[in-house]
Write a protein that binds this DNA or RNA. Structure first.
Lengths: 237, 237
DNA sequence: ACAAAAGTGTTAATCCTACACCCATGA
DNA sequence: TCATGGGTGTAGGATTAACACTTTTGT
């Protein structure tokens, strides 16, 4: 059908910047290789038009589900911001509301119905000096903002727990922080900090198996979202 | 003219939540009384359509200028978020990008060209139990978000300085914090904190005149935006 | 036994809070 | 002189950073 309007209008899309952390590859982000112009061959974040009566966050959640199969209702999306520059899409003025998502290390990319290449790419590759011009549209700016938001939220919220399986050790949680902050943390102090923050972690009583050294306790998310006082709080980053 | 589209589209508007602090009335926000349906008689934030080739932030700046005369290029707008619910405007789907602005205490509301009532209303009146249903659309939610953002930014940035004249005393800055946080602060500790934060304030060498008690030093913004370690950092709020 | 990783103890530095106290002005 | 607010001094508490040290496992 054709829509008509007496005023200038824009298209509305929802984009998702989904982060994942794996021991080997560190912090990665989910991208789709574009098969068509504009920006053919470059990477873009999963996203698409918001349905006529659809909520923007719901659209973002739908995009994430289509590319990863993640349908966790508890998964929270954080709004990064609105990207609305008049020339950001050469075809038509488009406003994208971008959301940040964190998923577990076992989340894989499932090729979308349009047979596009869906990949997890390390953030360092995309934002480093060598990685420039690999992202489509203004998605490099979106990634920069998303990365900053992720780093910031790890300080004072439990967002980092979303990057782990349901049960995890304190060392795994520390490695998540080290990957996101690109910085080593003192194991002892980290241990004390997260276990002393009331409600952040729940001890399962179980111990991890395998691995070198003394077995570690297994924890689950404790339900509290706020970390107070915040983690880190250093100004060298 | 008439615009046509093969896809569903939305209107794009920019809204400004401008805050002001005055000794008597505390923290207030700039609103426009609506003269037409929908929500006739309720208050809305200054805002309007973004021009076809206009940047959203520029549109917000234009709206603020039209209602207050403020044309300060240095005035920074902080994005609060995008408001895009499918039913937030009963006439047509409209996406509003809302910005936070802080202006000096002498900024007055200038009636717009559409002769609408432009007023500064205390935030407490609009968000308190008695003030419910005085704002149009989803502007109560926007105000809540703006208020939270303002309170948060005062902790770690120099944003509060925007609520003062070019030259001010430490006590005036403290009163700004007290108005925004709705909480009394220890004058001595506040003095030490803001003067010890490198680059935050610049001492003019001049002293305030009039007023009771010992004259206070007059300061200007020092240029640094970051306050580290942050102000306040208490969890009683 | 040794290496490796988990987890605890300890100390010193930093920063904030509370509040005492002196300073400089108007009434 | 007294009240008022500006500004500094100081002691105690909370939190962190650095690192030593013990615990518990695999090799």
């Amino acid at each position: 059908m054709t829509y008509t309007s007496d005023f200038p209008f824009v298209y509305l899309t929802a984009d998702v910047v989904a982060f994942r952390v794996r021991p080997g590859t560190g912090l990665s982000v989910l991208v789709v290789k574009r098969g068509n112009a504009p920006y053919r061959g470059r990477y873009a974040f999963p996203g698409g038009f918001v349905g006529e009566r659809e909520d923007v966050e719901r659209a973002a959640r739908r995009e994430l589900r289509e590319e990863t199969g993640v349908r966790d209702r508890a998964l929270r999306l954080l709004e990064i911001g609105a990207y609305a520059g008049p020339r950001r899409d050469p075809r038509h003025r488009t406003v994208s509301v971008a959301f940040l998502a964190v998923v577990g290390p076992d989340t894989t990319a499932t090729a979308g119905s349009d047979a596009a290449d869906v990949e997890w790419l390390p953030v360092a590759e995309l934002l480093g000096a060598r990685g420039r011009a690999r992202l489509a549209f203004d998605h490099e700016e979106i990634l920069t903002d998303a990365h900053l938001l992720l780093r910031d939220r790890l300080e004072s919220t439990s967002l980092g727990l979303g990057l782990l399986p349901a049960e995890f050790t304190v060392a795994e949680l520390r490695q998540v922080y080290e990957a996101v902050w690109d910085r080593e943390l003192d194991p002892g102090n980290f241990q004390r900090k997260v276990t002393a923050t009331a409600g952040l972690l729940r001890d399962t009583g179980k111990l991890s198996v395998g691995g070198r050294g003394r077995p570690a306790g297994l924890f689950r998310a404790g339900g509290t979202d706020e970390i107070w006082p915040p983690m880190s709080r250093d100004r060298d980053r």
